[in-house]
Design a protein around this nucleic acid. Structure first.
Lengths: 248, 248
DNA sequence: CGGCTTCCGTTACAACTTGTTACCTAGAGA
DNA sequence: TCTCTAGGTAACAAGTTGTAACGGAAGCCG
């Protein structure tokens, strides 16, 4: 993973800079913010991996902000607060905070909790495919990452375009998990997936087309796909088991 | 979602039964265990959604068990311990615990944290999927979560739409339990139940329609449903036994 | 360089899904 | 039996996806 990007939200400047610097010294990229609007700006502007959110932000309530963010996004949030009574902590957990840290806190302990939350988040979001050189077997087919070759159950070699094989790899790395179009898009452009020149901005239906084309090559009956299934309203799923043999 | 299954690991019988009962009273399925071997047995035997793991287990160390489990599985773990010093907590987080609760604890707060961890886990979906990939047998029919396929008693494959199969899964997870429309609705929108764009607000009778459509596909005589019975004034019940085989 | 081919994103349209509405039947209680 | 209401169902509408057709860009070849 790349360096995690944290966002420290606190209206007290001293605490904010202290925390930000502490985190930076410990190998994170950390920015400060003071209001919900600023949080949203930051998230708009770039990836944010974890938010450290103070509960009392002057006029705004961290708990409420947490609730709102949670409804929209899946970004991990650690609530930080001087309010350490049980019912206050419970309110925090209820709105979906990933952790609740009472002030004053031991910085090292906070660090441990930040790491724990990030670790958990990255465990669940293993969309990226790194195991490119492995040999995959799926539904009678096989894909050789080393040669970038696909073999049909009958042993015929099927030629995939570069983008198609990248797409296949994304699915092979995430069997049985419905992938949203944006996720697929992201995975394709992230992995050095040599891609199109046009570099779609996601407005169109490029992914649908790509899936359609891949289906026409690796599905017996593309009209009734057995492996690359549609998850209506979401995206697509690879509906077969995948066996992965590490490269020799 | 279905009822979460918790595993309470503690070598002190009193604590263990107290916790188990408390959790059961709050709507969870909870079992007790005392050793790592027992944990593994339980996990072998069936789904476990969350482990509450005491740090001091006589001869065994909860922290080490946690580390081992983490290396193999993705099951959420909350460490419980009388050792509340910072370095001890940090050790817990380091081995991948999802939370660290110090004894003595406020039961309600523990409950909140259990819920928070479960919520997060279901957001990241590793939990839901395990369950959804199971193979269900009911009234001669079978539903293969991996392939998202329904087979009739005669072995014919029946095509269900996404929403229909989501609905079926909800019933399969709650056999013999009359489900209210709101509950079904909630379960459908909660699970990443692929859905429509329209995203019903519950005013209409979408559930009735869905049930009707599902009946027309999996009931011999849709006019006289044997499996998907109507619970007048309440909702619907799946009136057959369900056998669940965990995914390979 | 020009022509050919391949790859891939866009568009348009048909087919399918799914929620809503309206109407009707069946069943429970008086 | 009558009445009232919950539930079954057909018809419709809105949104989503499959697919064919199109066109631009890059690579290959002479």
């Amino acid at each position: 993973m790349t360096i995690p990007r944290l966002l420290v939200v606190d209206d007290d400047e001293e605490t904010r800079t202290m925390l930000t610097q502490f985190l930076q010294q410990n190998g994170f990229i950390a920015h400060g913010a003071q209001t919900e609007a600023e949080i949203r700006d930051r998230m708009q502007a770039g990836r944010v991996d974890l938010i450290l959110l103070d509960v009392m932000l002057g006029s705004e309530s961290g708990v409420e902000i947490c609730a709102r963010l949670r409804r929209e996004q899946d970004v991990p949030i650690i609530l930080v607060s001087a309010l350490s009574q049980d019912h206050q902590r419970m309110a925090g957990y209820e709105v979906g905070a990933d952790d609740y840290v009472a002030k004053p806190f031991n910085p090292d302990l906070l660090l441990a909790r930040v790491r724990a939350v990030l670790q958990r988040a990255s465990r669940s979001a293993s969309l990226v495919y790194r195991r490119q050189l492995a040999l995959f077997r799926f539904g009678g087919w096989s894909y050789d990452g080393k040669r970038d070759e696909v073999l049909s159950p009958q042993g015929f070699q099927v030629a995939l375009s570069q983008r198609e094989s990248s797409l296949l790899k994304v699915f092979l790395a995430n069997p049985h998990i419905p992938l949203k179009r944006e996720e697929i898009q992201a995975a394709l452009s992230e992995g050095l997936a040599a891609g199109s020149s046009v570099e779609s901005d996601g407005t169109g239906r490029a992914i649908d087309m790509l899936v359609g084309r891949l289906r026409s090559k690796i599905e017996i009956d593309p009209k009734d796909p057995q492996m690359l299934r549609t998850a209506r309203g979401i995206g697509y799923v690879l509906a077969v088991d995948v066996l992965e043999e590490p490269p020799a």
